[in-house]
Amino acid sequence: MWGWKLASILPLLEEENNIKLKRNFVAAYRDIVTKLFTRELKPVEGVADALEALDGEKAVVSSGPLQKIKHALDICGLSKYFGNNLFSSYEVGIWKPDPGIYLHAAKSMGYHPENCSVIDDGPVGVQAGIEAGMKTYFFNRFNEESNTVGVVSFLAMRELPKLIGN
């Protein structure tokens, strides 16, 4: 369920675990995640070097809330690579695996989909990237089986610049 809309995940968790979450669960969850990020979040090994090596504009396209995106980037020291190119499903109203979130980002930045690359670490993002008509790279850090046609799977960020080329 990595990358899915939180509101879609919660009913599944309730059903699978035969529980009823409290009405304030989402707010409490977000507060805990913010505190954990502040205390423990670290950038993926090699991501800063990969971003530095890649030419062109970059964006974050996430199913998470905009404030969470900004917080994570600030903590990891990666904000400078993206500027204002931050696209949240909560702002756009489109959640992965709908390709519309990537298409919106490309259009907002002035690019045609076929001239864009998607780098995602979850199956729903990979699916959205492929369906958007973009070259799609799966950051497969857990070495999961990936049979999606047209997707380039890689295990370490240091591989990315060579895969994409400049």
Rank of each mutant, 00 (worst) to 15 (best):
residue 101 I to A: 01
residue 22 K to D: 15
residue 65 P to A: 14
residue 91 E to R: 09
residue 145 E to Y: 13
residue 105 A to W: 08
residue 158 R to S: 12
residue 134 M to I: 00
residue 80 K to H: 08
residue 28 A to D: 10
residue 56 G to M: 02
residue 136 T to F: 06
residue 97 P to M: 00
residue 52 E to A: 12
residue 51 L to M: 10
residue 128 A to K: 02
residue 56 G to H: 01
residue 94 I to H: 04
residue 18 N to R: 10
residue 159 E to T: 01
residue 99 P to W: 02
residue 42 K to L: 12
residue 14 E to T: 12
residue 152 V to K: 12
residue 133 G to E: 03
residue 43 P to E: 02
residue 41 L to W: 01
residue 134 M to R: 00
residue 93 G to F: 03
residue 9 I to D: 07
residue 79 S to T: 09
residue 58 K to P: 04
residue 13 L to A: 11
residue 32 I to W: 03
residue 77 G to D: 03
residue 140 N to W: 15
residue 59 A to L: 03
residue 102 Y to M: 02
residue 51 L to E: 10
residue 138 F to R: 03
residue 137 Y to I: 00
residue 10 L to G: 15
residue 89 S to F: 06
residue 60 V to K: 00
residue 14 E to Y: 06
residue 32 I to C: 09
residue 39 R to T: 07
residue 118 V to C: 02
residue 90 Y to H: 15
residue 48 A to S: 08
residue 45 E to D: 14
residue 36 L to W: 01
residue 65 P to Y: 14
residue 129 G to C: 05
residue 114 E to I: 11
residue 105 A to L: 03
residue 66 L to I: 09
residue 20 K to T: 15
residue 89 S to I: 05
residue 2 W to T: 15
residue 157 M to C: 03
residue 40 E to G: 07
residue 1 M to K: 15
residue 152 V to Y: 07
residue 104 H to N: 08
residue 97 P to N: 00
residue 32 I to R: 11
residue 110 G to K: 08
residue 121 D to R: 04
residue 38 T to C: 05
residue 65 P to N: 10
residue 141 R to A: 09
residue 26 V to D: 01
residue 12 L to K: 15
residue 127 Q to P: 02
residue 157 M to Y: 08
residue 70 K to T: 09
residue 10 L to N: 14
residue 141 R to N: 11
residue 160 L to M: 07
residue 83 G to P: 01
residue 58 K to H: 10
residue 71 H to D: 04
residue 148 T to Q: 07
residue 44 V to K: 13
residue 28 A to M: 09
residue 40 E to S: 11
residue 14 E to G: 11
residue 27 A to R: 11
residue 102 Y to C: 05
residue 3 G to V: 02
residue 30 R to C: 01
residue 127 Q to K: 08
residue 41 L to I: 09
residue 88 S to A: 08
residue 82 F to D: 06
residue 99 P to V: 04
residue 63 S to L: 05
residue 2 W to R: 15
residue 4 W to R: 11
residue 75 I to H: 00
residue 61 V to M: 04
residue 85 N to G: 06
residue 60 V to Q: 02
residue 151 V to I: 00
residue 28 A to Q: 13
residue 110 G to F: 09
residue 22 K to F: 11
residue 130 I to M: 03
residue 86 L to G: 03
residue 156 A to R: 13
residue 26 V to P: 01
residue 75 I to L: 06
residue 4 W to K: 14
residue 1 M to Q: 13
residue 123 P to E: 08
